[in-house]
Design a protein around this nucleic acid. Structure first.
Length: 428
RNA sequence: GCCCUUGUAGUAUAGCCCGGUCUAGAAUUCGGCCCUGUCACGGCUGAGACGCGGGUUCAAAUCCCGCCGAGGGCGCCA
């Protein structure tokens, strides 16, 4: 079976009138008008009208929507509303037939609910709104890589199967590793820190896993994280890196993805920078003025973040958290050891990223582990690298899926993840 | 773990609150017939549904209980 094409649909144009072309795609629409018919055919680059009349009508036999076809025909002028040229078919080959009934409407005229769409995710990609979300996601990833590489960051890949669950915190997924207990990584934290001793500036974009039974629009059991770690940078330096990544993402997609924005029905607006920076202590004062009393050292609950988010609806940094709320590796402030050199990047109430300056002195790290009831001996593999000349360093991790929801103005991460995993969904 | 909402053809919905009008309606999809410029083509026509189980009642899509599924929120989230 010959499946070759001479053109992608975006390469066809009205100046090619009279030219013979071969292209392929799936049948979006089929309108039979007695002795003539129109079909619209789409490939990933675009859509085109094909006209069939006269003797050629027999070509339509067995043809239905969503089937994959290879069209041989001649470009001609069109009277169509949305096309300035069309292809008069001389041959239509059905390469693969679509079965009916289909589980969702791939045209998107009737929007299926998220459950049905996720159950038929591959078919959902024929819906241009869904496809546009993932085309944008690809652009976002490219933009992040571009920004980081320009700043001398080196992309790394750390293991996702790890042997120790002693970091505490979020629940990990356990698995059997040739008879040993192993876990799926919840973050590249320790590995990326170690890498700063040789590569200085590293980043990773990868899936990580958390076995929390969360039921919200912003949590998944498997999520994509963008992580960086950089030697000789303080927390404010990596905040600047984060801010420029976010701004670049919005700029790049806003300027270069007009079609996608149109399909989604949302206009990407570039945020103004610099982002506002609010300290934890200031946040407590702001909350207090809203009659929400929180003791210093208490964590901010979702409801508190929602209140703060109303005052700061866009991007802002929440900085200088109390040490007791932060993990063992976070560095304290010189002028007030109760406070840490740490930050979260918020979009309104939504936490997008958290990071900070890390401890690089192994003795300090050991005593912090003990303070947090963690056993230094189970971190020896990690701690030994700190004796090899560990530079002062800072970093952060950012939830890519959450950033995507902010970028396109929706409120469920499942929309921006191909095959989301949550406590109730393991398939497809 | 807790709370709220919800389940009607392939899809997306009306009807449910206030039981009888439901032989469950319109759309789209799918099948058949007609149609040579459609463009959400049109016309005629046909097929297709009350998640499962129990209860209340003369009567249940509608009210109640259980199960299952779905959506959302809280909590959890070094």
């Amino acid at each position: 079976m010959d499946i070759s094409r001479t053109h992608l649909i975006e390469d066809l144009n009205s100046s090619m009138e009279g030219k013979d072309v071969i292209f392929g795609g799936w049948v979006v629409d089929l309108r039979k008008l007695g002795k003539m018919a129109f079909l619209t055919v789409r490939d990933v680059t675009g859509m085109c009208q094909v006209i069939v009349k006269g003797d050629s009508m027999s070509l339509l036999e067995g043809l239905n929507r969503q089937s994959v076809v290879r069209i041989l025909g001649k470009i001609q002028a069109s009277k169509a509303k949305d096309f300035d040229f069309e292809v008069s078919a001389t041959e239509i080959q059905v390469l693969a037939k679509a079965e009916y009934p289909l589980p969702i409407d791939p045209i998107g005229r009737l929007e299926s609910d998220i459950d049905n769409r996720l159950n038929s995710r591959a078919l959902d990609m024929r819906n241009q709104k869904t496809a546009s979300i993932f085309k944008l996601r690809s652009k976002v990833l490219a933009s992040i890589r571009e920004t980081l590489i320009k700043r001398k960051f080196i992309e790394i890949n750390t293991p996702k199967i790890i042997g120790s669950a002693s970091e505490g915190g979020a629940d990990l997924f356990g698995l059997d590793y040739f008879g040993q207990k192993a876990y799926l990584a919840q973050s590249p934290q320790l590995y990326k820190e170690q890498m700063t001793i040789g590569l200085e500036r590293v980043f990773e974009i990868s899936s990580f896993y958390r076995a929390e039974k969360s039921h919200t629009g912003r949590h998944l059991s498997e999520f994509t994280s963008v992580d960086i770690e950089a030697a000789m940078m303080d927390y404010t330096d990596v905040m600047d890196v984060l801010e420029s990544i976010v701004v670049d993402v919005f700029k790049n997609t806003s300027e270069n993805c007009k079609t996608e924005q149109q399909e989604i029905g949302y206009e990407i607006k570039v945020p103004s920078s610099p982002f506002e920076r609010v300290t934890y202590t200031q946040a407590l004062e702001e909350l207090s003025s809203m009659d929400i009393k929180i003791e210093f050292g208490e964590d901010l609950q979702d409801s508190h973040l929602r209140s703060l988010g109303e005052k700061h609806p866009g991007f802002f940094f929440l900085t200088d958290w109390p040490m007791k709320l932060k993990p063992f590796y976070i560095h304290e402030k010189d002028d007030d050891p109760k406070l840490s050199r740490s930050f979260d990047l918020q979009y309104g109430y939504l936490e997008l990223s958290s990071g900070g300056r890390r401890l690089h002195d192994p003795e300090q790290l050991r005593s912090r582990l003990k303070e947090q009831d963690l056993d230094p001996t189970s971190f020896e593999e990690h701690l030994k690298t700190f004796g090899w000349g560990m530079p002062p360093h800072s970093g952060w991790g950012m939830g890519l899926d959450r950033l995507m929801t902010v970028l396109i103005g929706i409120d469920n991460v499942r929309e921006v993840v191909l095959y989301p995993r949550d406590p109730d969904r393991l398939k497809p």
